[in-house]
Design a protein around this nucleic acid. Structure first.
Lengths: 104, 104
DNA sequence: GCCTTAACTTTGCCCCACAAAGTTCTTTTA
DNA sequence: TAAAAGAACTTTGTGGGGCAAAGTTAAGGC
């Protein structure tokens, strides 16, 4: 059990970063404002989580103009995909253990 | 997605409390020292997590003497079992969503 | 009579999540 | 052309909480 718990990646070990990653791994490029709405976060809060994930090189940023408006989109990197998958595997292992005693 | 994230129970939304609960739901009564070793926690740290879970009425304490040594054991309550199951269900739902884009 | 063990509690630190407000750039709108 | 507004941050400040370490209490062993 200790092993599983310590295998959880601290970078993803928070509900909001779990949410960010879950969205990014299934959508190629997601806009800043979309993330903000989907996760119900304030600007500062979202930006800090994104920055943390970006400096770990788990996500990357793409800035462009759509029409004449700036648009920032975020996507997961290969490294991020891999690390997040490992995190999910660990979570799943814990889930399995924790379900062992279920009545159903 | 927002809904799933907010459905995560804050009381369990931490690796160590996830660990504590995972152990307690599959074992009827677990000793304080066993938890400490299984989770690799210091006294103060473990005690504070246990107290948090206890005041939420998710776990309960049983104190007795074995031979002449005091022994404290912890067990999950029905309320805790239910709440934790809901938490796991939510986690599983997030896992499923996050796995949708997987290559395999 | 001291040392040890169990099981805490207390103390104090430090980091971090978070909200709110300020910032920059640019585009609408009046 | 001035003002407002939106995108995407950055900065600032506060509060909470995780954590280790040390202190505490009560009992037992030696």
């Amino acid at each position: 059990m200790k092993d599983f718990i310590t295998q959880l990646n601290p970078a993803f070990d928070h509900r909001n970063r779990l949410g960010i990653m879950s969205i990014l791994v299934v959508n190629d490029w997601v806009e800043y404002n979309t993330l903000k709405e989907l996760l119900n976060l304030t600007d500062g809060n979202l930006a800090s989580h994104l920055k943390a994930l970006e400096s770990s090189e788990y996500i990357r940023v793409h800035k462009q103009f759509v029409g004449r408006k700036p648009q920032t989109t975020y996507g997961v990197t290969d490294k991020g995909k891999e690390a997040f998958k490992a995190h999910l595997d660990t979570l799943e292992a814990i889930l399995t253990i924790a379900r062992e005693g279920e009545d159903s």
